[in-house]
Simulated assay, not measured.
Amino acid sequence: MKRRKDNRKCLENKHIPYGLYERYIKRPMDIILSASALTLLSPVILATALMVRIKLGSPVIFKQKRPGKNGKIFNNYKFRTMTDERDEFGKLLPDEIRLTPFGRRLRASSLDELPELVNILRGDMSVVGPRPLLPEYLSRYTRRQARRHEVLPGFTGLAQVHGRNAISWEEKFEWDVDYVDRITFLRDWRIIFETVGIVLKKEGISPQASATMEIFQGSSKETAKE
C-alpha cells in the first residue's frame, strides 16, 4: 500500500523539461514525423492490415488500455498478432500457442506497431520515450521506476536500443529514467537511427524463455532502486 501511495504522488509531480528542445520542439517534431510516416507508409499499413484480416481475422487492430504521461490512461493501437483461441472453459490459451508464425514475423519486423503512429499524432505518445506498459504495473513500481511516467511514452526508447526485450525489467526502467532526466534533440535522433538498425537486424524481439515478455511483478529488494 505504501508503494502505491508513493507512486501516485510521484506520478503527480510536475516534470521540468530538460531544455528548449523538450519544451518547444519535441512535440511539433512528433507531429511532423508521425504524419509523414503515416503518409509514406500508407501502402505498407494497408497491406499489413489486409494480411492480418486474412491470416488472423477481425478485429485487425488490437486496442489495449495503457498508462501514458502522469499515468493517464489511453487506448494503445497495434496490429493484432495473436488468435483468440480459448480452452474448454473459455480462458485464452497461452501466448506461445496464440502467437502464430505470421504474428511472429509481424513482431520481428515491428510492423505490428505501425498503428501507434496514430497515438503519436493524437498526443498520447511521442516518437521517443519509455514504452507504454500495462496499467496494473503502476502500483508495482518503486518511486524511481514510476518516474518513467513523467513524460509521454514512446514508439521507441533508450531501453529498446539497449536490449529491447532481452534485458530485465529493472534494466529497462533504469534506461527509461535515464532518458527522462536528459531529453535532447541529438539523443532522440540517435535513438531513432539505432532503432532502425535494430529492427533490420531483428534483435531483442522477445526474451529467450517465452514468446512475450514476462509480466512485471515488482522488483525485489536486491534489484530495486528507490
Score class of each variant (00 low, 15 high):
Arg3Met: 10
Arg4Ile: 09
Asn7Ser: 02
Lys9Pro: 00
Leu11His: 03
Glu12Phe: 03
Lys14Asp: 05
Tyr18Cys: 12
Leu20Ile: 14
Leu20Ser: 15
Tyr24Trp: 06
Tyr24Met: 15
Arg27Asn: 05
Pro28Asn: 10
Pro28Trp: 06
Met29Ser: 13
Ile31Arg: 05
Ser34Cys: 07
Leu38Asn: 09
Leu40Tyr: 09
Leu40Ser: 00
Leu41Trp: 01
Pro43Glu: 00
Val44Arg: 13
Leu46Glu: 03
Leu46Ile: 15
Thr48Lys: 10
Thr48Pro: 08
Thr48Asp: 03
Ala49Ile: 10
Leu50Ile: 11
Met51Gly: 01
Met51Phe: 11
Arg53Asp: 01
Arg53Cys: 05
Lys55Phe: 07
Gly57Tyr: 01
Ser58Thr: 10
Pro59Val: 00
Pro59Gln: 06
Pro59Phe: 06
Ile61Cys: 03
Phe62Arg: 07
Phe62Gly: 07
Gln64Ser: 08
Arg66Val: 09
Pro67Tyr: 08
Gly68Phe: 02
Gly68Thr: 09
Lys69Ser: 12
Lys69Trp: 04
Gly71Val: 14
Gly71Ala: 00
Gly71Asn: 13
Ile73Thr: 03
Ile73Leu: 15
Ile73Gln: 15
Asn75Glu: 12
Asn75His: 08
Asn76Arg: 07
Tyr77Arg: 15
Asp84Ser: 13
Lys91Ile: 13
Leu93Ile: 00
Glu96Ser: 15
Leu99Ser: 05
Leu99Thr: 14
Thr100Met: 09
Pro101Asp: 00
Phe102Val: 06
Phe102Leu: 02
Arg107Met: 03
Ser110Lys: 15
Ser110Thr: 11
Leu111Ile: 08
Asp112Lys: 09
Glu113Tyr: 02
Glu113Gln: 11
Glu113Ala: 00
Glu113Trp: 02
Glu113Pro: 04
Glu116Cys: 12
Glu116Thr: 09
Glu116Tyr: 00
Glu116Trp: 01
Val118Pro: 07
Ile120Met: 04
Arg122Val: 05
Gly123Cys: 02
Met125Phe: 02
Ser126Leu: 03
Val127Phe: 14
Val127Arg: 02
Val128Ala: 04
Pro132Ser: 07
Leu133Val: 13
Leu133Ile: 13
Leu134Val: 14
Pro135Gly: 15
Pro135His: 01
Ser139Asp: 14
Ser139Ile: 11
Thr142Trp: 04
Gln145Thr: 11
Arg148His: 04
Glu150Met: 09
Pro153Leu: 08
Gly154Ile: 01
Thr156Ala: 15
Gly157Ile: 14
Gly157Pro: 12
Gly157Met: 13
Val161Leu: 06
Gly163Trp: 01
Arg164Cys: 02
Ala166Asn: 12
Ala166Asp: 08
Ile167Glu: 09
Glu171Thr: 12
Lys172Ile: 02
Asp178Arg: 12
Val180Tyr: 07
Val180Asp: 04
Arg182Ser: 13
Thr184Glu: 11
Thr184Met: 06
Leu186Arg: 11
Arg187Pro: 04
Asp188Asn: 10
Trp189His: 14
Arg190Lys: 13
Arg190Thr: 11
Ile191Asp: 07
Thr195Val: 04
Ile198His: 01
Leu200His: 03
Leu200Ala: 13
Lys201Arg: 15
Lys202Arg: 14
Glu203Tyr: 07
Gly204His: 10
Ile205Thr: 11
Ser206Phe: 03
Gln208Val: 14
Ala209Ser: 14
Ser210Arg: 08
Ala211Tyr: 02
Thr212Ser: 09
Met213Thr: 14
Phe216His: 08
Gln217Pro: 06
Gln217Leu: 14
Gly218Met: 09
Ser220Cys: 05
Ser220Asp: 13
Lys221Gln: 14
Lys221Asp: 12
